[in-house]
Amino acid sequence: MQDLDLKLFFDPIPPYVEIDTSIQGSIGQSIFINQGSMPDYDGLDIALIGLVEGRGEKEDHREGIAKGPDAIRQSFYSLKKGSDGLKVVDLGNFRNGPDLEDTYLRLKEVCSFLMRHNIVPVFFGGSHDMTLGQYFGYEDADKLITVLNVDNKLDLGDPAKGHLPSGSHIQRIIKHDPNYLFNYYHLGYQSYLVGSAESDLMERLSFEAIRLGVVKENIKDLEPVVRDADMMSIDVSALQAQYAPGALDAKVYGLTGEEACQICWYAGLNDKLSSVGIYGYDQSRDDLSMKTSFVIATMVWYFIEGFYNRKGDKNFRSNDYLIYEVPLGGDPSSIKFFKSKISEKWWMEVPHPEETDGFMRSRMIPCNYSDYEKALDGDVPNRWITTYSRFT
């Protein structure tokens, strides 16, 4: 495995970001921090990475974006640690490339390197187009991945028509060559902020865009969507402005801080999820209490707590699962459901019609008990249908 000198990619945490030693049991006292010398990453679980890159946004936001990661740290370090034995490192602030595209490529290199070492990178700060570098990190992973994006807009703008990178990066992900995108979920979009051409494109591609109202009806129903993701990207503009005044484009309506933390908790519990990014914070727009930095810090805290409560739901050939095969008498003739004896979560198997190896093998799709009940009534669950359609 090719080694990488991480010191070349990061600036240490500046001295004005203080760790309050009077707060006993704080996160800041419980993790490894790059305060001048790069900590050894060997054997660690999670790497925190501050992003100061704002060239994908309007120029008047860039200074505030650059100050964002350290403001988030100041809030994060003062939180109480939850789980014992944290193996978490704060690598510092990622150094920008000579131009924006260079930053994406550098981010790709570091993201890929950390994931090969079984370390989950958690990015915070930067404009939302930093999702591109995160996504590019999977290019050499030799698998198709599922992306989860949380945002109040779809960000499907056309760069050729002058749309900023922060508003067009999802378009680039969809069109990226080589293509290793199997599925894409979008949570929390607000219909009145999305054009018909964008929503029509999502529908044609059979991607699942779930509007804000559906998310808020019962967020627990969205847990299988979060559990299906390999990577998650969150634009803090998906939150209500009262919770995130420092977001670049938060509106009156949106997710609450509690709902955002719930999504991060689900993401942490997801055994297959291998990277997270929380983007779009402009420190200069935050209120006097630095409310947005606290909300983002708490979201990171909940992801870490979720991670240390993972149940190891990966090996579906083990005896840790109950298997229920539901006959349907049509096409498909039956569907296999798997229930974990440990976490009590459900999955359903979607076989590839040609039973090939490699990318296009059978896939285990997270689901709810309600999907099992639907099959018992003779109906094929919608997510089974959309997944199968990707094979054909």
Rank of each mutant, 00 (worst) to 15 (best):
E349Q: 14
M299N: 05
I119T: 09
D5G: 02
S293K: 09
E139S: 14
H61G: 05
R95M: 11
G268P: 10
V52G: 01
P224K: 14
R390K: 15
K175I: 03
V89F: 09
V326C: 05
D151F: 03
N270G: 12
D20C: 11
N152P: 07
E53L: 12
Q35S: 15
D357F: 07
I23E: 10
R55L: 06
L201Y: 01
Y302N: 12
R363I: 15
I365R: 05
D84L: 07
G257I: 02
P381C: 11
K216L: 12
R363S: 09
S233A: 07
D377T: 14
I304R: 09
T298R: 11
G36W: 07
S293I: 08
D331P: 01
F10T: 02
D221N: 14
W265R: 08
I304G: 06
N96Q: 14
K272C: 05
A197I: 10
D379I: 12
A250G: 09
K81A: 12
S343R: 02
V147A: 01
E101Q: 13
Q262T: 15
E208Y: 00
D230H: 13
L269K: 15
A47W: 00
V214P: 04
E53M: 09
A297W: 04
R55N: 09
P39Q: 00
L4E: 14
L222R: 01
S389I: 01
I385H: 03
L105N: 10
P332E: 04
A247L: 04
K291V: 06
S75A: 15
P381A: 10
M364A: 03
D102I: 03
V120E: 06
S233W: 03
G43V: 06
G85Q: 09
L376M: 12
Y135N: 11
L6Y: 04
M130C: 10
S333V: 15
F337C: 01
Y16N: 08
D99F: 13
E223T: 04
G56N: 10
M231G: 03
I263P: 02
D60E: 13
E198I: 03
V88S: 02
A260I: 01
S75C: 14
V380R: 00
D286L: 12
S289N: 13
M232Q: 08
E53D: 12
K220E: 15
Y321Q: 06
D320L: 14
D11A: 08
E259Q: 15
Y253I: 14
I49S: 04
I65W: 07
V89E: 08
